Amino acid sequence: MASACLTMQRHLTRLLKRLPAGCQGQVYQGLHTSSVSLDRDRSSEDTKDFMGKMNGLDEYTYKGQSRFVDYNQIVYEPRKEGEDPRPAEICHKKVMIAVTPKKMWYPAFMVRGLSIDEAITQCEFSKKAAPKIIKDVLIEAQERAIKFFNVEYKSNLWIADSFVERCDYMESLVRRSRGGIRKIKYEYSNYYVRLREGQPPKHYYAPRLTGNEQLEEYIKEQRNRRIYNGL
């Protein structure tokens, strides 16, 4: 038992020596896993506000994040007489999601170009965490569209844009067998969505060219060839 403790102490000493001088104090504090210090330093109200920000509840005042929701404040010029009215656009986001961007990427791109009801239905089919989070964000954006953006029908919306970015990550130490120590990383993601009023387009992405269209494009490229600096 004593030899195992000495081995673990040596591993910790070697790991701490590799860190910069300014980070060593933070590592020593991070080794304390008890909640007594948290309860002593923070009141119940402060702890509740802190956990609310970490869960993305206070996402509109979260500092250091992208100002994606500021697109909601843009005021466009009035349309001319005879033009169609400009469809409403609603930008919404959720920050500090405890899912890696790699897992959030596929369902975020899956809902692009779908109607809001179809996107929510598609997210319900999966049992993974990422589609469920995206479904909750879509429902929140749908409610905001009705409440704050004067959208008449909540089903008359489609996903114009949906993407994910890496937010932040946290590193921690895990004790392994035989006195070993391994460093693990917890990654967080930010999810952004833009809803647009109206019916979704027939093709969100450019459709694949047919054989005749590919032939015409090839002939056009060949005829546009030029030999520079030639006779």
Rank of each mutant, 00 (worst) to 15 (best):
T121D: 14
A129Y: 05
L114F: 08
A108F: 05
G113N: 12
C123W: 09
E124F: 00
K103W: 09
R112M: 14
S126E: 00
G113C: 09
F109E: 15
A119E: 08
W105I: 01
R112Y: 08
A119V: 11
T121V: 07
I120K: 15
R112Q: 15
Q122T: 13
M104C: 09
F109P: 00
P131T: 02
F125N: 05
G113D: 14
P107A: 05
P101K: 13
F125Y: 12
K102T: 09
E118D: 15
S126W: 01
P131N: 02
M104H: 05
Q122W: 07
M104V: 02
G113S: 11
M110E: 10
A129T: 04
G113Q: 14
A108C: 12
P131I: 02
P107W: 10
R112L: 13
E124P: 02
K128Q: 06
A119F: 08
D117N: 13
K103T: 03
P107G: 03
E118C: 08
K127I: 06
A130N: 01
W105M: 09
S115E: 06
D117K: 11
K102E: 10
G113M: 12
I116G: 00
P101D: 13
K103E: 08
V111Y: 11
P101I: 11
S115C: 06
P131V: 00
M104T: 04
M110L: 14
C123N: 09
A129Q: 09
L114D: 03
R112F: 06
W105Q: 14
P107V: 04
E118G: 06
M110N: 10
F125I: 08
Q122H: 10
K127C: 05
A119D: 08
R112C: 10
C123Y: 07
G113E: 15
A108I: 04
S126L: 00
T121Q: 13
C123L: 09
F109M: 13
F125K: 12
E124V: 01
W105S: 10
R112E: 14
V111R: 11
I120Y: 07
K127Q: 11
V111N: 06
S115V: 03
Q122A: 09
K102C: 02
Y106F: 14
T121K: 13
F125M: 06
K127E: 09
P131G: 02
Q122M: 10
I120C: 12
F109R: 15
I116E: 04
A119P: 05
P107D: 08
W105F: 13
I120N: 09
P131E: 02
L114G: 00
S115K: 13
